[in-house]
């Protein structure tokens, strides 16, 4: 069973995001870059399926030179090879551009199943997996928390508001990973050593025959709206403080 896992390199969740003064982007200095946590669930699931069913796991990423670190991390976890789409013209493209580039790269390798994270925690767009599925004419199941492959189909658990759905799809298909799918492994030291020798194919836009589009463009980045300073309810008696809070919530904030 050949599996693709798409990954993106993003700032770690503890990163403080600073907007550039001209609003053209965020300050990238000092950021600790990691593999998008949702993509990591996809990589882990791909590895578990490979361990059970055999085959190869291919990691596909789009990003600048530093994004290679995320490919090496996935290879160290146990993936077999990588494709790094590295082209400055595609780096700040919209979701459609990213999906088109990933689709073009994926078409060059055999696959039975594709994993994406349900969203990247940087732009929070959550579109790439579905657009990719559309461009490859594949079915999709998004927000997946459990995967069972049986023969030529997959059963996936999908979490929606107030319910869990069990959805069956024929293979190949695109699954987008949600938290709860698994607990990703850490790369072992021998894994890290082996990863250095695993093949990674570097491709640019011309090689893939794709061009960037800016159907959706971030025209301006802005810091979050500031919140006015709050009130600390003083005193030593928890009961009195609780009573005052309840009163404020009802009479001043009017939320009760």
């Amino acid at each position: 069973m050949n599996i693709i896992a798409c990954v993106k390199q993003v700032p770690d969740t503890e990163t403080l995001i600073k907007v550039k003064t001209d609003g053209s982007g965020i300050e990238e200095g000092g950021i600790k870059w990691v593999m998008n946590p949702y993509d990591e669930f996809g990589v882990e699931e791909a590895l578990r399926l490979k361990e059970k069913n055999g085959g190869e796991v291919t990691i596909v990423t789009l990003g600048p030179a530093r994004a290679m670190e995320s490919i090496r991390t996935a290879l160290a976890m146990g993936a077999d090879k990588g494709i790094h789409i590295d082209d400055a013209s595609l780096n700040n493209g919209d979701a459609y551009t990213t999906a088109a580039a990933l689709a073009a790269a994926i078409k060059t390798v055999p696959y039975d199943l594709i994993f994406c994270g349900q969203r990247a925690i940087d732009d929070d767009s959550g579109q790439v997996g579905s657009i990719l599925a559309e461009l490859l004419d594949l079915p999709q199941v998004t927000l997946v928390t459990k995967v069972e492959v049986a023969g030529s189909s997959v059963k996936a658990m999908r979490a929606i508001e107030g319910a869990q759905l069990v959805i069956e799809s024929p293979l190949p298909c695109v699954l987008t990973a949600q938290k709860g799918l698994n607990e990703p492994r850490y790369a072992s030291l021998p894994g890290i050593m082996k990863a250095k020798k695993k093949p990674v194919d570097i491709k640019d836009a011309a090689a893939l025959g794709v061009t960037a589009s800016d159907k959706a463009k971030v025209v301006k980045f802005v810091p979050p709206p500031a919140r006015p300073p709050g009130k600390i309810i003083a005193g030593d008696d928890p009961t009195a403080k609780a009573a005052q809070l309840a009163k404020l919530l009802r009479e001043e904030a009017k939320v009760l």
Binding site: G126, S130, A133, T142, L143, E161, D214, A216
Partner: peptide, 23 residues
């Protein structure tokens, strides 16, 4: 931008070859 709306809207971006701002 509910679970269903996100699933549907993203697929539509692909089908309609357009752009979308999420959430």
């Amino acid at each position: 931008a509910s679970a269903q709306g996100k699933d549907l809207s993203s697929r539509l971006v692909g089908k309609l070859a357009t752009g979308m701002a999420t959430d």
